[in-house]
Design a protein around this nucleic acid. Structure first.
Lengths: 141, 141
DNA sequence: TTGCAAATGAGAATGATTAGCATTAGCAGT
DNA sequence: ACTGCTAATGCTAATCATTCTCATTTGCAA
């Protein structure tokens, strides 16, 4: 009943769509999903939720700290389960593979860069766009 | 005639709209401008260019390496003159002030993070979202 | 079980950006 | 300078992701 706890503590009613979305992320099959992805996966598994609801739920979960939202290059944003550990992302430009990483030095220097210039760091987004080195990349190798 | 050289070498005809857009950026009054910003500024100065043209020109300039495009938090993207020097950005969440910075160590560690995980770094985007420390911030101080 | 506010679903609306197309304007060659 | 042709422009309509509206449904507390 981990899901229920999450929802309760966020002041969210435990509804079918919310549980479905949550368990999709907790199943762990795909860490990074867009609203469209979630919508399609739910449809595919016979669960009938509206796209608008998916968007709403995703955003509520983000507010509640259950999910984290990312804007990879360009258009649609993706969500991933918030497991407390902050990390940044490397995205393969060819196959889309996403790898997570954390570098204490980078974090450190960012804070420094901000404070040196009269800012108090609140947040940051760091995406590395790269190419898989063979033979891992699904497309280019 | 710096502008002309730019355009020529990019294989772009030297047209009125392109010259207008280019000189807007080269005037240096605002480093970071969205398509909408450019459009409005041109209108304001009596130059009559269509919004679609602005978008087209901006993208052509990006391809040509004359401008660089950035996606700050959320929606619209902004462009800035490409002066050869790569840098990242700090954006104030309150007043929108944008400060540029470069940190060799961060660059370094990114390359390392990528290669350690089987990627060849191609590109990256790093945005620090922060709050101005008083009294510089136009809104919160 | 009842009642009601909160949540959902379907479709319309929005906002940024792009595509389609008829008209205009650079510019190379007379 | 004049012709002509292709690239460029300026509308407007179209896209695409995301949000809003609102009538209907559902979770849940009394």
């Amino acid at each position: 009943m981990n899901e229920l706890l999450h929802l309760k503590s966020a002041g969210l009613k435990s509804t079918l769509p919310r549980l479905k979305v949550l368990s999709l992320f907790e199943s762990g099959n795909d860490r990074h999903l867009s609203a469209e992805d979630v919508y399609k996966k739910l449809l595919a598994s016979g669960d009938d939720v509206g796209l608008a609801t998916v968007y709403r739920v995703l955003n509520q979960f983000e507010q509640a700290g259950i999910l984290v939202k990312h804007h990879f290059e360009g258009d649609k944003s993706v969500f991933e389960l918030n497991q407390g550990d902050h990390h940044d992302h490397i995205v393969c430009l060819q196959c889309g593979r996403v790898e997570e990483f954390f570098d204490a030095t980078i974090e450190q220097r960012q804070k420094k860069a901000a404070s040196e210039r009269g800012f108090e760091l609140h947040d940051h987004s760091l995406y590395i766009y790269a190419n898989c080195i063979k033979p891992k990349c699904k497309y280019k190798n």
